[in-house]
Simulated scan of single mutants.
Amino acid sequence: MKRVSEKPKISPQEAEMHYQSSKENYTIESAESHLAYYREKHPIYYAVLLQNV
């Protein structure tokens, strides 16, 4: 996972909408879950969601 060195300027609501839209376009091609895929491909948005859970 990439390190996020600066505080992202993304609102929790924006991150949630981004996650939901990503989930709609995600197709299972392996045993990898959407959350694992999302954490790898969108670390900044994932970090925002993680901080606001």
Results as ranks from 00 to 15, higher is better:
Leu49Ile: 07
Ile44Phe: 06
Ala31Lys: 15
Ser30Met: 10
Pro12Leu: 02
Asn25Thr: 03
His34Thr: 00
Ile28Met: 13
Val48Met: 03
Ser5Gln: 02
Gln13Pro: 05
Ser11Arg: 01
Glu6Arg: 13
Ser22Glu: 14
Ser21Pro: 02
Glu24Cys: 12
Ser11Val: 04
Gln20Ser: 06
Asn52Trp: 08
Tyr26Val: 06
His34Glu: 03
Val53Arg: 09
Glu24Val: 04
Arg3Ala: 08
Val53Glu: 09
Ser21Glu: 15
Glu24Thr: 09
Glu32Trp: 05
Asn25Ser: 11
Lys7Glu: 08
Glu16Gly: 03
Gln51Tyr: 02
Leu50Asn: 08
His18Gly: 07
Tyr38Trp: 15
Pro8Glu: 09
Lys23Met: 01
Leu49His: 05
Glu29Thr: 11
Ile10Asn: 03
Glu32Asp: 13
Ser22Cys: 15
Lys2Trp: 01
Leu35Glu: 14
Glu29Arg: 05
Tyr26Phe: 15
Asn25Leu: 11
Leu35Asn: 11
Leu35Met: 13
Tyr19Cys: 05
Asn25Phe: 00
Leu50Ala: 14
Lys7Ile: 14
Ala47Ile: 06
Val53Tyr: 12
Lys23Ser: 05
Lys2Tyr: 03
Pro43Met: 12
Ser30Ile: 03
Asn52Met: 00
Gln13Val: 11
Ile28Leu: 13
Lys9Ile: 04
Val53His: 02
Ala47Val: 06
Leu35Arg: 13
Gln20Leu: 05
Ile10Ala: 08
His18Arg: 11
Ala36Arg: 07
Glu14Thr: 09
Tyr19His: 09
Ser33His: 06
Gln13Asn: 04
Pro12Ser: 04
His34Arg: 10
Lys2His: 01
Val48Leu: 03
Glu6Asn: 10
Ile10Tyr: 03
Ser30Pro: 10
Lys7Phe: 12
Ala36Lys: 13
Lys2Thr: 00
Tyr26Asp: 04
Arg3Ser: 04
Ser5Asn: 01
Leu35Phe: 10
Ala31Arg: 11
Ala31Met: 14
Ile28Arg: 14
Val53Asn: 12
Ala47Glu: 06
Gln51Thr: 00
Lys23Asn: 09
Pro8Tyr: 10
Arg3Gln: 11
Pro43Tyr: 06
Arg3Val: 01
Tyr37Val: 04
His18Trp: 02
Thr27Ile: 15
Ala36Ser: 15
Leu50Gly: 05
Glu6Pro: 08
Tyr37Met: 11
Met17Tyr: 02
Gln13Trp: 05
Met1Ser: 08
Asn25Trp: 06
Glu16Ser: 04
Ile44Asn: 08
Asn25Gln: 02
Ser22Gln: 12
Ser33Trp: 04
Gln13Ile: 05
Ser11Ala: 00
Leu50Tyr: 11
Tyr38Pro: 04
Lys23Gly: 00
Tyr46His: 00
Met1Val: 01
Lys9Trp: 00
Ser22Val: 09
His34Tyr: 13
Ser11Cys: 03
Glu40Lys: 11
Val48Asn: 01
Tyr45His: 12
Glu16Asp: 10
Gln13Ser: 14
Tyr37Trp: 15
Ala15Arg: 01
Glu32Gln: 15
Glu14Ile: 09
Ser11Gly: 01
Ala31Trp: 14
Pro43Ala: 13
Tyr19Leu: 01
Ser30Val: 08
Glu40Phe: 07
